[in-house]
């Protein structure tokens, strides 16, 4: 079984107050910690579980600069046999179409039975990369999977739908599956484990070795371009109620009644 997993190194913004940089297009990122995209942690764990139960080889891929290697070390620490990092300055801030072209190029002529990706990333949240890559490879894909079992040349999955519904789908291998959070419990990775993984090699590829020309990159970038980012307008009249819980509740009640009463 040849398995591939794609991971992305993203800023951890859960606890951060974000500010837009002077260019109006990027986040002031100097202070932000970076980590593996949350969905990808589940995809990596699922890849390791499949490898552990069926045997085979797991290759981890990442499109990112040198600082992003930390996420690949994590892959190696939990059981990836190989790690490949693709980078080119032209990929900085690239849209999902350009990133997918790099992902496709990184796979090259190798044939994988199962490719896993996170269903989306916590930064842009497009959720485009996985299915786009599947189309580029000519294999079927299935998105938002929260249960899966590989058996007899197929993968039987449950997709998570809205309103408490799920959907069972059967997909023939080779296939690409995008993983929803909560599908498993990503294992704890010790600092020691990551340190040990530092000794393992990471293969580096650039735009030339993944076969993307500047022209191709420009075509892909043209499909979706960022105009700017901004802080959402603060809701009118946002007000923090202070006091003991009882006082806050009383003030809250008064305000709701005044506003037209849902009670």
């Amino acid at each position: 079984m040849k398995i591939a997993v794609f991971v992305k190194h993203v800023p951890d913004v859960a606890e951060a107050d974000l500010e837009v940089a002077a260019d109006g297009r990027t986040v002031k990122g100097g202070e932000l910690p970076f980590e593996m995209n949350e969905w990808d942690r589940f995809a990596l764990e699922e890849a390791v579980l499949v490898k552990d139960s069926l045997g085979g080889e797991l290759t981890s891929f990442l499109i990112g600069d040198e600082a992003a290697e930390e996420s690949l070390r994590r892959c190696l620490a939990v059981g990836a046999d190989r790690a490949v990092r693709v980078w080119d300055d032209g990929l900085a801030g690239a849209n999902p179409f350009a990133l997918t072209a790099a992902m496709r190029g990184a796979i090259g002529e190798d044939e994988y039975d199962l490719i896993l990706c996170g269903a989306q990333s916590s930064d842009d949240g497009y959720g485009l990369g996985g299915p786009l890559l599947a189309e580029a490879l000519g294999v079927p894909s299935v998105a938002l999977v929260n249960k899966m079992k590989v058996e007899g040349g197929k993968v039987l999955v449950t997709r998570e739908l809205e309103g408490g519904w799920g959907e069972e789908v059967e997909v023939d291998l080779p296939a690409l599956v995008t993983i929803q959070t909560g599908i498993n419990e990503p294992r704890y990775v010790s600092i020691l484990g990551i340190k040990k993984a530092r000794k393992k090699p990471i293969d580096l590829m650039d735009a030339v070795s993944v076969g993307i020309t500047a022209e191709r990159l420009a075509t892909e970038k043209e499909k979706l371009s960022l105009v700017g980012i901004e802080t959402p307008a603060v809701g009118e009249g946002a007000e923090i109620l202070e006091g003991s819980p009882e006082e806050v509740a009383a003030k809250c009640l008064a305000l709701l009644k005044e506003a037209g009463g849902v009670l």
């Binding site: 986040v27 916590s122 497009y126 371009s225 980012i229 901004e230």
Partner: peptide, 30 residues
Amino acid sequence: VTDVVALAAEGASLAATRVVYGGKLNSKVK
């Protein structure tokens, strides 16, 4: 473009507003 909260025709194509970074910022894309 996916997960759009506002969409409008602009020039020969579309401009879209999206919510990014866990809802902390809005982005406009073309």
